[in-house]
Amino acid sequence: MTSPSVLSRTPADSAVTLAHIMSDHDTNLYGTVHGGVMMKLIDDAAAAAAGRHAGVPAVTVSVREMSFLAPVKAGDLLTVRARVGRAGRTSMDVSVVVTSERWNLAGPVTRVATAQLVFVAVDSEGKPHPVPELAPEGDADRPLGGSAE
């Protein structure tokens, strides 16, 4: 449960980074990582960010936007960064940026996808649960879509 003393949290408080080396098992018939595999990782990171902000579990309500920008191959290190960008009474908008680089090389890093998802915090009975307000952080509060952090 969210502590009653927590009235607000910053976007940095919810930030999550998930990294995964993609394998041949993750690829489609074209030899690139299947979009559904990437979408699962995006949803996992976004759910963790929403849960961190809410202090309780959060469930996916919708995917407002999903853009695949470049292909990903087996052997690429996929990094998914997510954080809450807006908080309502029980819902949260989560921004996600996905980058890719070869697992064994230092760069180049390529932005391969972006996404915007909506989550609702839920209590132990699955009913909507109030979430803390989102406190601004200045420059660190910019949307993830604006830069590959």
Rank of each mutant, 00 (worst) to 15 (best):
H34E: 14
I42M: 14
T79N: 04
M22L: 11
T79K: 03
R52K: 12
W103P: 03
A45E: 02
N28K: 13
V33T: 14
M92Y: 07
G145D: 01
S147H: 05
T99R: 10
D141S: 11
L29I: 12
S67L: 10
V61P: 02
F68H: 10
K127A: 13
V72K: 11
I21M: 09
M39Q: 15
V96G: 01
P130E: 03
D26S: 04
M38A: 08
P71W: 13
M92A: 09
E101C: 11
R89W: 02
V16P: 03
A113F: 00
D76K: 06
A48S: 09
N28I: 13
A12F: 07
A49E: 05
E137P: 00
S91L: 09
D43G: 03
P57T: 00
V33C: 10
R52N: 09
L7Y: 04
F119T: 06
P136L: 11
D13W: 05
V6W: 08
V37R: 13
A50C: 08
L18I: 01
L7D: 11
N28Q: 10
R111Q: 15
P11L: 03
G146S: 05
M22C: 11
S14D: 04
T110C: 07
M92L: 11
A148V: 08
G51Q: 09
G145F: 00
V80L: 02
S14G: 03
A48F: 07
A148D: 09
P136S: 11
T10R: 13
H34G: 11
M39G: 14
T110S: 14
F119Y: 07
S95Y: 04
S67Y: 03
P132L: 05
P132C: 02
G36K: 06
N28D: 15
D141T: 03
L134T: 01
M38N: 11
G55W: 09
V109C: 07
A70V: 00
S3V: 04
V59P: 04
G51W: 02
R86V: 10
S95A: 12
A58W: 01
A82Q: 07
E133W: 09
V131I: 13
H20I: 02
H53E: 07
P143R: 11
G55A: 06
T99H: 09
V37L: 09
A50W: 02
A15H: 06
D139W: 06
Q116M: 08
A58I: 04
S62Q: 04
S8P: 03
S100G: 08
V72E: 10
P132F: 02
V63L: 01
V118T: 15
L105M: 15
S91T: 15
T79Y: 05
R89G: 00
A12P: 05
H20D: 06
T10H: 12
V63F: 00
V33K: 14
I21A: 09
G145Q: 03
M1F: 04
S124A: 14
V98P: 02
E101D: 11
V56Y: 00
I42F: 10
L77E: 05
G107K: 12
